[in-house]
Simulated scan of single mutants.
Amino acid sequence: MRPSRPLQFTALGLGFLFLYIPIISLIVYSFNESQLVTVWTQFSLRWYKALWYDDELINAAWLSLKIAVLTACASVAIGTWAGFVLARMGRFRGFTLYTGMINAPLVIPEVIQGISLLLLFVEMAKVFGWPAGRGMFTIWVGHVMLCISYVAIIVESRVRELNPSLEEAALDLGATPLRVFFTITLPLISQALVAGWLLSFTLSIDDLVLSAFLSGPGSTTLPLVVFSRVRLGLNPEMNALATLFIAFVTIGVVAANYFMQRGQRKRLTGVL
């Protein structure tokens, strides 16, 4: 027996309220004059002004943004190749090992991954003298290792849904496999690539554990700064910074959805 429509809307509304009321309250209290984050006094931009002069927080946010963008781009490039191999190359020799290595970061705790990478970089520095220290590069490597698996799974599931007759027809007409990939396959899986990019960006900018192991002096990411400050008490500047990030991410997601839908409409118009 299917539940009634009012019950469905009620459950859906409660779910959305549970998810978004904390975010809305955070945005509202970012405009609060009081230093107490849970006591409203009056509307003010005080904490946005304070955030503007907080060099530590701004530098950490800028570093996290740069690492997140680089991580997302590298993860999509490598993860797309990995997912395509999983979906199209069949069960080749070493397929089980290959699949296990792709999926390993999903099941291995980040603490273990962080310790392993830290030991790797320390030994490489002893043997080769590189990397000389831990910083942006080592954090980026750790985040890419984590995010590749997510992109590969998303791309694999999308590639498996494609109709191979489109690519076979292009090959029969004389197109090279490389041109078929960039002309036909890549546009068809573009939504999966955008989803993988956004997911990688979010995972990177939100990561705390790997960054704690792989960061060094002068390379403190935003989650590390926020975590160190929150332990001493909630700071209204965090609400202001979180509001700016929410606005930035919302604009990015809306823009990505708009361009994907416009591209989809163009392809459908071309087919019709």
Rank of each mutant, 00 (worst) to 15 (best):
T183V: 08
V253R: 02
F245A: 11
S165L: 13
T99S: 13
Q113V: 14
L117A: 03
G270D: 02
I67Q: 01
S44W: 10
T96A: 15
V122E: 10
T96D: 14
M260H: 01
E167F: 07
M136G: 01
L173W: 00
L86K: 11
A68I: 04
G15I: 02
I78Y: 04
V209Q: 05
T138R: 05
T10Y: 12
R160A: 04
L214N: 09
G129P: 04
L36G: 04
L193H: 06
S215K: 08
G233L: 10
A170C: 03
T220F: 00
V141R: 07
G216F: 09
E33C: 01
I23G: 03
W140K: 04
V254I: 15
P6E: 08
K66I: 08
A50N: 12
L12F: 13
L162E: 05
E123R: 15
R2T: 15
L14Q: 02
W140D: 09
A247S: 12
A242M: 06
L45I: 10
F213Y: 14
G15Q: 00
F9S: 10
E110G: 00
L146M: 11
P6L: 05
F92S: 08
I24Q: 10
D55K: 11
F31T: 05
S219G: 03
A195N: 09
L45M: 15
L97A: 14
L166N: 11
V76D: 07
D206C: 03
V194M: 12
D55S: 12
I108N: 08
C73V: 15
L106G: 08
V254D: 04
G196Q: 07
L118S: 05
